[in-house]
Design a protein around this nucleic acid. Structure first.
Lengths: 145, 145
DNA sequence: ATCATATAGTTGCAATAGCATCCTATTTGC
DNA sequence: GCAAATAGGATGCTATTGCAACTATATGAT
């Protein structure tokens, strides 16, 4: 009946959500590669790139590039950590702070869009199941490294 | 409790599954960008690129590039459709046919990995919920175009 | 029959992302 | 105290992907 593999579901869903988010962020000069970093920085002002990389679960190179773009667009500022000059402390700029509510609204809209015609309990279930799959994927990737 | 957005779940899960699949396909010269095409061609020998693009839900350029790679690696063959010389008919080569069982096993392993510690009914539910989200995403993307 | 339009596929470009490597600053071991 | 190892971050390269523009073939309206 439903013989579509998880691999395909995840791939298509990812690419489609990218298209939706890119479309909504375009007018702010941002793309799908940056918005999750803004959310994370808003939650933890002064965070460094290593911690951001861990939270975002990506490569440190990806973090560096996303932050470069956010900095050049004026959404964030990087301050050398004088206590350990290998680190930067990352903060939202005023422009970044001002954008956060808009961004949260955009993300809320995306969540609503994806969960159209789903009950609250189905939404919870979805997150739980995604969470389980993600945990399994993380363990497998750890095994590979 | 669980305030991770769908956007982040989907993004991380996609990237991690890519890492897993890339790792498993590496020894065959393939990457995550090609394997779903092989599955689709195995199911519909002689399919053309437009139909493949529709099934894969991606851009026709992505299809063209994936098929170029599969062809240069010897997994598929493209025959001009003499009835309409704009089309190619896509077939698996002998090498491609021979690889399909291996590929199916790899995908089965991925599915098993992702669904570790999930009951059969949770797996079904996951697919149903992914399916709903995907339908919603498709509708939204249609709206944007 | 001809010319406009539509369609299948290709190519160029840009964005995202991971891996490997490099650089500089810090820490550790002797 | 200094050499070696480690750590945070940057850079180069490659793969995947989407969009836009292009080519070549086919269809349709006049």
């Amino acid at each position: 009946m439903n013989d579509i593999s998880f691999g395909k579901y995840i791939s298509v869903l990812y690419r489609y959500t990218q298209i939706i988010i890119n479309h909504q962020l375009k007018e702010y000069g941002l793309g799908s590669g940056q918005y999750l970093f803004l959310i994370a920085i808003a939650k933890s002002p002064g965070i460094n790139q290593k911690e951001l990389t861990a939270q975002m679960m990506n490569d440190k190179a990806t973090t560096a590039k996303a932050l470069s773009k956010l900095e050049s667009l004026g959404y964030i500022e990087r301050q050398k950590d004088e206590a350990d000059r290998r680190n930067y402390k990352i903060f939202l700029s005023d422009k970044g702070e001002a954008f956060i509510p808009t961004l949260r609204a955009i993300l809320q809209t995306l969540t609503s869009t994806l969960s159209t015609e789903m009950t609250a309990s189905e939404i919870d279930q979805s997150k739980e199941l995604l969470d389980k799959m993600l945990e399994n994927a993380i363990k497998e990737v750890d095994r590979l490294k």
